[in-house]
Amino acid sequence: MTEIPKEEYILKCTSACAGCPSSLILRYVLKAAGPDTVLVVPACCTSVIQGIYPNTALNVPVYNVAFAAAAACASGMSEAFRKAGKKTSVIVYAGDGGTVDIGIQALSGAFERETDFLYICYDNEAYGNTGMQRSGSTPVGARTTTTPGGKTHAKKDIDAIVAAHNPSYLATACAAYPQDLFKKVGKALSLRGSKFIHVLAPCPPGWRFSSEMTVEMGKLAVKSGIWILYERESGKVTINGPSKAAMIKPVPLEDYLSGQGRFKGISQKAIDALKSQAEQRAKHLQKEAEGIC
């Protein structure tokens, strides 16, 4: 069993919604990172969750910054800390819109420059803070307030884009697997250079499921194979246990989709597209894990 510290860095009375995966994820991220940490947060749900001035619900320094600017701001912060001889961990904690859409240029620049930082994208597959508009990370078929008929385009493969920068460490994680997330954050922070962890964040109001079902929904995402837990270190891919099991015997994708209001009335064509994308991703990762490509 992994020893998870008792220290809490998220204090009580956040402004998070009931069943919020973002604060659940951040809780374990900060337990793994410890007190010598600064969070850089662009516009996202966490901008609100941390509370309203003069209060803050987070017990590490948080630097809130403009939507597109997180990775660049972290670049400057990391360089300044290292110049001063400090080992302080700089962690960007950004949503999917701030990562795959408006923040992608700064993200790419920071990774190309091998900035010493950890970038965590918590992905609820839409612009949650502004009321669930589609993002580049919204999956095909999902209804959002700007795709009322269901999204017609596929989810952007941000992991492949980040992987193309050859980062020190890249991993996926899921709010429903906190021990796995805790270990990955610890590993990432033990390495120098640019690290990326992409965490699926099943969002009760956004995905339209009941707020006690967050963990269950995350588990279904992994068990159905639509979300794969893996790590990429020095080009080597390791598929993690729960996803290995799912590749052998997945639960039907329909079990994952049917519990979410955002997929209500989804077309068979969109379901087929989701399945096909999931299968292709699994095959590709399996080949990489076996060292074939």
């Binding site: 600017a69 660049a72 972290a74 670049s75 400057g76 912060m77 300044a80 790419s108 620049g109 420059r113």
Partner: peptide, 25 residues
């Protein structure tokens, strides 16, 4: 530390991130 950023938006963002640690930028 000279950071050859990928845009001016990032240039100022990097200066902001550095400056808030107390560094001259």
């Amino acid at each position: 530390r000279y950071i050859p950023v990928e845009s001016e938006h990032s240039a100022m963002a990097a200066c902001i991130g550095a400056s808030i640690t107390g560094a001259r930028t």
